[in-house]
Design a protein around this nucleic acid. Sequence first.
DNA 1: TTATATGCAAATTGTTTGCAAGTAT
DNA 2: ATACTTGCAAACAATTTGCATATAA
Lengths: 166, 166
Amino acid sequence: MKAKNKHDHRPTAASLTHFRSLLSNHMAKKGLRSTDQRKLIVETFFKSANHVSIEELLADVRAEDPKVGYATVYRTLKLLTECGVAFERRFGDGLTRYELADEESHHDHLICVECQSIIEFEEPRIERIQEEVADQHGFRLLSHKHEMYGVCASCQAKLNRASGTR
Amino acid sequence: MKAKNKHDHRPTAASLTHFRSLLSNHMAKKGLRSTDQRKLIVETFFKSANHVSIEELLADVRAEDPKVGYATVYRTLKLLTECGVAFERRFGDGLTRYELADEESHHDHLICVECQSIIEFEEPRIERIQEEVADQHGFRLLSHKHEMYGVCASCQAKLNRASGTR
DNA sequence: TTATATGCAAATTGTTTGCAAGTAT
DNA sequence: ATACTTGCAAACAATTTGCATATAA
């Protein structure tokens, strides 16, 4: 049986089916059309690593069809965001990154301020407290963003070594 | 006795003293100079509402000295961020906002996606779990950002009313 | 005196938009 | 046929940078 550990981001076939239908629903409702570029961008996004930037995604798309433009990627990602298939994330660098809105894996991020590496974690206890807080304030909670910034183990070691050299 | 409730952001005299010394330390270490503009910008920032944008801050600064330029405000806020006096925050709109790095009030944000209003909350239980998570991954935790997006009570009411009219 | 700071304007970066030509329905 | 889409380039908005001038040390 195929193992799927919690750091594996490849979406299941079932969730892709779900996302595809979310998208085509939304498109039908709005009278939007299914074009080769859109299909290519969406499928490329589904295959992408987590937290793709527009640039990275465009590069992958152009590997398949070199004449796709920036604007189309922006427009398509905005579309995916609107219909709940993708989430926009803005970390420290000035780039917008996108991830699959996989409801199952409500993970959050631990970001190293030295090497910029991103570790994901899940904490059901925090999720529960969040709901509580939202309730207390009368909010209907839609989504959240929880980022912790720090120095990862290997950068701590590196920094210690560097200061020891002095 | 003066009450200071948890939604009052005016910093105490003591914490301002602390921030001023953080800043002058940093400046001494880097050989930076204390100019009228820097002093004015820093003091204006200390008096500002929480989550000021560069624009708002500049407007207040120019009330005092109309010929201060954008670039100086950007440069000074970057300086404050580097020496740990201010935090940069990026919410949904494309603006960077700044807040005093007040360690005591480790508040987080609940943001209404309809009216953009921001409610702050504190949750010691979440803080504790965060430390735990960071430890598990060998991270030395420096700061965090925890934002919850939803619909506030009054916007929910408004939306219900609107859909009732149909 | 001399290295840092300032204000301005120009440059950069990420993202959005207008439009003529192309294409799905 | 008739909208919707695309790619391009131009437009934008936020932020950064280069440079001549001003100023703190």
